[in-house]
């Protein structure tokens, strides 16, 4: 397929997918926009989920169809390499999206908001269970580094090898450092055979 595509329209780039997970208002779209070469892109997926209602007490499941918005960005590194960043909410009820987004993903960024650290627990558990390489970036969007990284690490009960850094999601430079941290982690995994 690859060769065929190349014959018809020049080189088809290789793609790297990075998942950016965080609670509402944690700054996912801001971080993606800070890095994306095009305005943050938007798409929708219609999902069928099993909803949990009172009937579940009797073992009856309901199916609900919901439309989920996905924001993503694109970074062209060169003509043969494109990085996509996909934002996804970090709460458990969105876990059916994490499955698809993490499939084939290079790794993930958990964007944590110190006002609502608990929003990150579920997605961190998910990435740990699935062995998805991830870094935690604490968004200090008010510009005040009121939280010490160590305190956040303890609050999130993060294992030692998980990189944690403070960032300002509005800043391209800062957002770049977050992605660099992730790729460095993936490189360490690759070199250690993990």
């Amino acid at each position: 397929m690859g060769r065929m595509a190349a014959e018809v329209a020049g080189p088809v780039p290789d793609t790297l997918k990075i998942v950016v997970a965080g609670g509402f208002g944690a700054g996912k779209t801001t971080l993606v926009s800070a890095l994306s070469e095009v305005e943050s892109l938007h798409t929708e997926e219609v999902m069928t989920t099993e909803s949990v209602g009172l009937d579940d007490l009797a073992g009856v499941e309901d199916k609900t169809t919901t439309t989920v918005a996905l924001d993503f960005g694109r970074i062209t590194l060169d003509e043969s390499t494109v990085v996509y960043l996909f934002g996804t909410p970090g709460q458990r009820r969105f876990s059916y999206m994490w499955e698809e987004l993490t499939r084939g993903a290079l790794g993930a960024v958990v964007l944590a908001d110190t006002r609502r650290l608990t929003d990150s627990f579920d997605v961190i558990d998910f990435f740990e269970e699935r062995r998805v390489p991830f870094v935690v970036a604490v968004n200090c969007f008010d510009g005040q580094r009121t939280h010490r990284a160590d305190d956040v690490r303890v609050a999130l009960d993060l294992e030692d090898p998980v990189p944690l850094l403070l960032c300002d999601a509005r800043s391209r430079q800062s957002a770049k450092e977050v992605v660099v941290e992730l790729v460095e982690l993936v490189l360490r995994w690759e070199l250690s055979g993990a």
Binding site: M1, M4, A5, T15, L16, K17, G104, W189
Partner: peptide, 11 residues
């Protein structure tokens, strides 16, 4: 034609 990057099958 479609093409999925090899990098999505293996790191």
């Amino acid at each position: 034609v479609v093409r999925t990057s090899d990098w999505e099958r293996a790191r």
